[in-house]
């Protein structure tokens, strides 16, 4: 990792990353860099490889080819056990389907992430729920929460361990506009706090609040746009 010609090391760098299923190239030689504190949106038609890329960045899947450097570590070469540790320590995940444990309360769902990371801390978990405006719903089960509320619990769960990157795969895909607004607002606040965000979305409105948008097509990086509408501050590190 020390042999980089780039002087400033990116938080995340993909070099010619491919993911091949049989003869399907779900990802085809994708290269990109994400700086610390950046807010990146990823768009592209269905089946273009967005989730595949997020799973690889999120240490849940390994690329068939290429290097994935996270904090300078090539996660493509790590063992499954180390990947679990990296994921636990550095990554916060938000999914389209929320994925909350149905028999645990909102608070317990957040505390579960603490449990696997270090030790559960109810006070801290409560503060995370306050940040997403759900303090009064802490003792509710997911089934007693609306979709928007469930996704906000997921955001609280993703940020509880202060991850270096939050990966959100279509986080507003199952939400109405009002809730989408709330979640986007939460992202904006996370970004202001310096969290690196990578958000996969179909929704141009969700994409254009990010600093830049990467567009995938057929597993390739098709093009990239810098968002003129970006209102947050641009943090350079």
């Amino acid at each position: 990792m020390g042999k980089d010609k780039v002087k400033r090391m990116s938080l995340l760098e993909l070099r010619n990353v491919s993911k091949i299923y049989g003869d399907l190239h779900a990802l085809d030689k994708v290269s990109l860099q994400v700086e610390k504190g950046e807010w990146v949106a990823i768009m592209g038609p269905s089946g273009s490889g967005k989730s595949t890329m997020m799973n690889i960045i999120g240490c849940m899947d390994k690329p068939s080819e290429g290097e994935v450097l996270l904090d300078g570590i090539d996660i493509a070469k790590e063992t499954a056990k180390n990947l679990t540790n990296i994921r636990r320590d550095k990554i916060g995940l938000i999914f389209q389907q929320f994925h909350l444990v149905s028999y645990l309360t909102a608070l317990e769902n957040v505390m579960m992430a603490q449990y696997y990371h270090s030790i559960p801390d109810e006070k801290e978990a409560m503060e995370a729920l306050e940040r997403v405006g759900l303090a009064d719903r802490a003792r509710h089960l997911p089934s007693q929460l609306s979709g928007g509320e469930q996704q906000r619990v997921c955001v609280a769960r993703a940020l509880i361990n202060y991850p270096e990157i939050i990966l959100a795969d279509e986080p507003t895909g199952n939400l109405d506009e009002a809730n989408e607004e709330i979640v986007v607002d939460l992202f904006r606040r996370l970004h202001e706090d310096g969290t690196t965000l990578i958000v996969v979305t179909h929704d141009p409105e969700v994409a254009e609040v990010a600093q830049r948008t990467l567009v995938l097509r057929n597993g390739r990086l098709d093009h990239e746009t810098i968002n003129p509408n970006f209102t947050g501050h641009i943090k350079l590190s």
């Binding site: 636990r88 992430a113 696997y116």
Partner: peptide, 16 residues
């Protein structure tokens, strides 16, 4: 399975 996958995604080790 889904819950187990989620727990693993959240960083649960095999041992846990």
């Amino acid at each position: 399975r889904k819950e187990i996958g989620l727990r693993k995604a959240l960083g649960a080790s095999d041992a846990s």
